[in-house]
């Protein structure tokens, strides 16, 4: 069964847009949870719960797309930006568009990102698996759905190659590739590929400033000790961590601030995938019967 946007009924789209708009205008649009006391995220605003399957069924989006939706929206740093994306998601989906191919198309986009390709090419097995998985998704888009066995073979090859890679970034790229070795109909495939891509992005950002696991561990222990002895309890959250570091280890405090700056850049991969999905919506075919 194809996934037809809004079941080709303009009234369903109008209703969804109105529900979302209502939450945004009332300042009841939130990142998390999906639904609480009338406040809602991108899913809850439509169906008053976090039930992704219900959202997919109600609006006609593929479930594998919906399972990735809140992680894309949450990659925006402020609520207004997140709300703007949530509105674009509905606005740019044509009523009656066949969305069945969008997940595989989005995965192809993620597998072809230069940031991934550069690291995947660091290990011949990972690059071979990446190419093979791309080929399977392209076959599926041409209507020649690969058999379960074909996906399984490339998936196991990708896992084996990732385990062999010694460079952490290359290994991380391998986990992106292995996560993509599923048909676009698999419920969490896009969510999983985005998650692995996000971890690669994080590792790369941390490597750019040479932030180490040891430094992460040092910060954790200083914070943990303060929880026990109650130091600087007058401060909270990040302010407390920075206060403790400034007092105990000024050099580490400076490094930690660098790390925080890098964290601000996180989410680019989610946002770029989100933008790509909006473009794919605009280009999705609308069957003649739906016009």
């Amino acid at each position: 069964m194809p996934d037809i946007a809004f079941h080709a009924d303009p009234a369903i789209k109008v209703d969804a847009q109105a529900r979302l708009r209502g939450h945004i205008d009332a300042k009841r649009f939130i990142f998390y949870p999906a639904w609480e006391d009338g406040a809602a995220n991108v899913i809850g605003a439509i169906i008053q719960s976090g039930d992704q399957q219900a959202y997919a069924d109600h609006l006609g989006y593929p479930i594998a797309l919906v399972t990735a939706l809140d992680s894309i929206v949450n990659a925006y740093s402020t609520t207004p930006l997140a709300a703007e994306y949530a509105q674009s998601w509905l606005d740019r989906t044509p009523v009656g568009a066949d969305l069945s191919d969008i997940v595989s198309q989005a995965i192809i986009f993620l597998l072809e990102r230069p940031e991934l390709v550069a690291h995947a090419r660091g290990h011949a097995g990972i690059e071979t698996a990446r190419q093979a998985i791309l080929a399977l998704h392209r076959r599926a888009l041409q209507g020649d759905a690969p058999e379960r066995k074909a996906w399984k073979v490339v998936r196991l090859a990708a896992v084996t190659a990732s385990d062999q890679a010694k460079d952490p970034l290359v290994r991380c790229a391998g986990t992106v590739v292995e996560a993509a070795a599923w048909p676009g109909t698999m419920r969490t495939v896009l969510h999983d590929v985005l998650g692995a891509s996000g971890r690669l992005e994080l590792k790369q950002l941390m490597q750019e400033i040479g932030w180490t696991d040891e430094e992460e561990s040092q910060v954790f222990h200083i914070r943990e000790q303060a929880e026990i002895d109650g130091r600087m309890a007058e401060l909270s959250g990040l302010d407390r961590v920075l206060g403790l570091l400034d007092a105990d280890n000024p050099q580490l405090a400076g490094r930690f601030r660098q790390r925080l700056d890098q964290f601000e850049k996180l989410g680019h991969v989610y946002r770029s995938a989100g933008a790509e999905i909006l473009d794919l919506f605009s280009r999705a075919p609308v069957p003649v019967a739906s016009r």
Partner: peptide, 8 residues
């Protein structure tokens, strides 16, 4: 464990 790793 990831879905792919679980499968493997």
């Amino acid at each position: 464990i990831s879905r792919s790793r679980l499968d493997a």
